[in-house]
Every structure is written in structure tokens, then in C-alpha cells.
């Protein structure tokens, strides 16, 4: 019994410490209190809605989010815009559809079932417009970076003057959290860049937090139900384990042996 427990904890320790060490960089990221962390972690709806605003007004001109649909914005566990709001958001985008009966492609206002409109036709066009660098798709960006949300959050605030020993080419910027410190993206945020509908002060820090929260949701849209289900599942398993433990003791009491 005790041995088994010890073994489990040792192995989990090893595995987790091992996988932590995979994260290539050992930079201290900026920390903030994420509402979605922890056993019962949930998204902050207002922050998600603000984060969507930052994405759509700032990031979306270069970064696509090709796995998201406008309907996701109204789904439970996300920003939870009302259906009418989500429809209005979708309709504000021009979507290419077709071909019609004449064989022509045409544009129409977006519908809930449409995917997020992409800023560029394809990867080549994106590269051509950004000096050869491809602005990565942001749908699962948080999960695709070693440091996760802390990394993105820090990166957005990590722009500073390059140290004198670092020379930068044209169109390359210095960011202390970027791998190799050189980044093709100019500092995307500045104080007051967007005007929040709910009156929140749009500081760089606030916008970074909001948009990172939004990106976490876009990467893990079922995070809330996962946490809820996980808690129930583990409580259930513990109850059943206790019951089985006592049943086992009863059954084994028939033989003169220890379990």
C-alpha cells in the first residue's frame, strides 16, 4: 500500500520534472493571476470579451484563427456573447462563398457557422506582407508555446530597447522573452490602443492579460467543462476506491493473510 503510493508519487515527480525541463528557455516570465488555473478554474467572461476585442482590432490584421467559428463566441464556457451579438459580429465580416449557379465566387455577410475570416489568402501571401515572416495562426498558439499563457503574456510586454551589443536588422525588434530575443513583430500594444466598452482602462498590461485569456480559451474551448467534469470524476473515483478498499478488507479477512 504505502509502497505503491510512494512509487506513484516518485514517478509522477520524475515525469513532471522531466517534462518541465523540456521547456527550452529558463526565463522568468511575468506572472499574473489567471482565473482559469486551478481545480475549479473558469474564464473571466468580461476579460474574454475584451480579449476578443483586442484580437479583432489589433491581432486579426495579421494573425488568423482558422479553427474558430463565430458561433464559438456564443457557446457556453467561452466569451458567451449573446446569440444576437455573435450574429452581429459575424455579419460585420465579408465572407467569400460560392460558387453560385453561374460558377462565380461571391461575398456575403458572415454567418454563425462561418470560420473566422483569415487576414491573408494563404501562407505565401502572409509571408509576402510581413517581410518573409509568417504570423502564426493563433487558434492553439497558447498550447504551441512552451511557456503557455505566461509566455504570451510576457512577450506582449517584453519589448524594450536592444542592449548595445545586439544589432537589429530592419523590421526586427528586441523582446526579452522571445526565443533568441529577436522578433519580427513590432510591439503590437500601446496604452489606450483600444477603447473598452465596459470602461476598463486599456493599459498594455490589461490588454495583454485580456487577449491572452482569449487565446487560452481559443486553444482550450472546453477547459471549463473539463475542470468541472474532472472534479466530479476524481471525487467519484475516491469514493469508489474507499468502498472497494473496505470490500477488499472484508473479502480478504476470510484468509489469514494481509493485503
Amino acid at each position: 500500500m504505502k509502497n505503491l503510493f510512494k512509487l506513484f508519487s516518485i514517478i509522477i515527480l520524475i515525469i513532471t520534472s522531466n517534462s518541465n525541463s523540456f521547456a527550452a528557455e529558463k526565463v522568468e516570465y511575468l506572472k499574473t493571476d489567471w482565473s482559469f488555473k486551478g481545480l475549479f478554474g473558469k474564464f473571466d467572461r468580461a476579460s474574454l470579451q475584451r480579449g476578443y476585442q483586442v484580437y479583432t482590432e489589433v491581432c486579426a490584421s495579421c494573425h488568423s484563427m482558422k479553427y474558430l467559428s463565430y458561433r464559438n463566441l456564443a457557446e457556453p464556457g467561452g466569451p458567451e456573447f449573446s446569440e444576437a451579438q455573435a450574429k452581429a459580429i459575424a455579419a460585420s465580416f465579408e465572407v467569400t462563398d460560392g460558387p453560385n449557379s453561374d460558377g462565380e465566387m461571391f461575398t456575403r455577410p458572415g454567418k454563425l457557422s462561418d470560420k473566422f475570416v483569415m487576414p491573408y489568402e494563404n501562407v505565401k501571401a502572409a509571408q509576402a506582407a510581413n517581410g518573409g515572416a509568417y504570423p502564426p495562426d493563433m487558434s492553439v498558439l497558447v498550447k504551441a508555446r512552451g511557456g503557455g499563457v505566461d509566455y504570451i503574456y510576457s512577450l506582449l510586454q517584453g519589448y524594450e530597447e536592444a542592449p548595445s551589443n545586439v544589432s537589429l536588422d530592419d523590421g526586427v525588434y528586441y523582446n526579452k522573452y522571445m526565443y533568441g530575443n529577436k522578433i519580427r513583430m513590432a510591439a503590437p500594444l500601446s496604452d489606450g490602443l483600444v477603447e473598452y466598452g465596459d470602461g476598463t482602462n486599456a493599459t498594455v498590461e490589461q490588454m495583454s492579460k485580456d487577449v491572452t485569456t482569449f487565446l487560452m480559451w481559443s486553444a482550450e474551448p472546453h477547459l471549463e467543462s473539463r475542470h468541472q467534469m474532472g472534479f466530479k470524476a476524481i471525487v467519484y473515483l475516491i469514493i469508489l476506491t474507499v468502498l472497494v478498499y473496505f470490500s477488499m478488507k472484508r473479502i480478504w479477512s476470510r484468509v489469514e493473510s494481509e493485503v
Binding site: 505503491l4 503510493f5 506513484f8 509522477i12 515525469i15 513532471t16 517534462s19 523540456f22 521547456a23 481545480l39 498550447k143 504551441a144 508555446r145 512552451g146 503557455g148 473539463r226 475542470h227 467534469m229 474532472g230 472534479f231 470524476a233 476524481i234 473515483l237 475516491i238 469508489l240 476506491t241 472497494v244 478498499y245 470490500s247 477488499m248 473479502i251 480478504w252 493485503v259
Partner: peptide
């Protein structure tokens, strides 16, 4: 019953990974 008991302990660990750290064992 003994295997079942051990299996349930194992499943608690399993569930922890699935629900609370599903990507920790994978690579970003």
C-alpha cells in the same frame, strides 16, 4: 477485488492528467 482497488488508485492518477494536466506529457 485487489486488482480493482489498485486499478482505481491508478485511475485517480490517470484522471488527474486527463482533466488537469492533459498536455504536460506532450510537447508544445
Amino acid at each position: 477485488i485487489k486488482d480493482g482497488f489498485a486499478l482505481l488508485m491508478f485511475m485517480i492518477v490517470f484522471a488527474f492528467f486527463v482533466f488537469y494536466a492533459p498536455n504536460i506529457l506532450g510537447h508544445a
